[in-house]
Simulated scan of single mutants.
Amino acid sequence: MRVAFQGIRGAYSEMALHDHFGRGVETVGCDAFDDVFDLVNSGEATHGFIPVENTIAGTVVENYDLLFANDVFVIAEVYLPIRHTLLAKKGTQPEAVKEALSHPHALKQCKAYLKSKNIRMVPTYDTAGAAQAVAAGERMDCAAIASELCAEIYDMDILERDIQSNSSNTTRFFVIAKKENVPEGHKTGKTTVAFKTRHYPGALVDCLKIFQKYRLNLTKLESRPIPENPWEYVFYAAFEAGIDANEVKAAIGELTLHALFVKLLGSYPKAEKCW
């Protein structure tokens, strides 16, 4: 098994990946999300591991667009509590730290802590990259905000744990694979679909009534523009039932009659929420 993720060693995606697959799995870091999809499509990776939603930052819209554009299937969802850690070179004294490097989202989530310590925020491309840069540098007054895994990978000191302001900060990930790599006996409990409505008043309501009719509890509904067709939108919906359930088969069959198109993005076990 070879699993692709966006980022470098120590990224939160890799941390969540290890929680799901175990530490023995082979991982491949990618520069961008579309590279993850390319590796899965080409067969160079058996699975991809992508973030799709964060309780603070919201939906990772790029990955929903990529799910829509690629012939892959979501086979699992994973939740990871985001616990930001202040890391520095070995031997750094906490009171000596004057600057902290990290992704802008992580800096914002730790702003209160940094302000209380009079530490200046320095935005970088990603959290793990910030840790790698600090570990490779010579400065002893510079730290990184990243995952605890980075301390192990880049041989760094942990100056303080859990420095984020919001303790419920959680990221949801999808595991993707080509349909031929979906395991036999794959169990499902949630389903995600994309659909485009017809053009008449109440078209979306008519589609949503189908979910109500078959008592399917929607956990997500979001629209995204279709770049090739300006001012037209595709809707992403997730509901709590697997694709093998009779009510789901009936609902999707009926949805295809009301919508211009319907694409099944995945059906997967319902993950345990972790807050």
Rank of each mutant, 00 (worst) to 15 (best):
M1E: 09
R2G: 05
R9G: 13
G10T: 01
G10I: 00
A11P: 00
Y12L: 13
A16S: 08
A16L: 02
H20I: 08
F21K: 07
R23M: 07
G24F: 12
V25D: 04
E26A: 13
C30S: 12
C30W: 01
D31W: 06
D31C: 09
A32T: 14
A32W: 09
D35I: 00
D35C: 02
V36H: 00
V36N: 00
V36P: 00
L39F: 09
L39R: 08
E44A: 10
A45D: 00
A45I: 00
T46W: 07
G48L: 01
F49T: 01
I50N: 06
V52F: 09
N54K: 10
G58N: 09
G58L: 06
T59I: 15
L66N: 05
V72G: 05
F73Y: 13
L86T: 02
G91L: 09
T92Q: 08
Q93F: 10
Q93R: 15
K98Y: 08
L101H: 04
H103V: 05
P104D: 13
P104I: 12
Q109K: 12
K111T: 07
Y113N: 10
L114R: 02
K115E: 15
K115F: 07
S116G: 10
S116A: 14
N118G: 08
R120F: 05
M121F: 11
V122I: 15
P123C: 14
T124G: 04
Y125W: 07
T127S: 14
A130D: 03
A131F: 03
A133C: 05
A136V: 05
A136G: 11
E138Y: 10
E138H: 12
C142I: 12
A144F: 01
A146K: 00
L149Y: 08
E152S: 14
Y154E: 04
D155S: 11
D155Y: 09
M156W: 02
M156I: 03
I158M: 08
I158W: 07
D162H: 11
S165A: 14
T170H: 04
I176F: 07
K178A: 07
N181Y: 13
P183I: 03
G185K: 15
H186G: 08
H186R: 10
H186T: 06
T192W: 09
V193L: 14
V193N: 02
A194H: 06
F195A: 03
F195S: 04
T197S: 10
P201Y: 10
A203D: 04
A203Y: 07
A203V: 03
V205N: 11
D206P: 01
D206H: 06
L208D: 04
F211R: 01
K213R: 12
K213P: 03
R215A: 13
L216V: 03
T219R: 11
E222C: 08
R224I: 12
I226P: 03
I226C: 07
P227V: 14
V234F: 04
Y236H: 15
Y236D: 04
Y236M: 15
F239P: 01
A241E: 13
D244M: 13
K249M: 08
E254W: 05
L260A: 11
V262D: 05
K263E: 10
Y268P: 02
P269Q: 11
C274G: 06
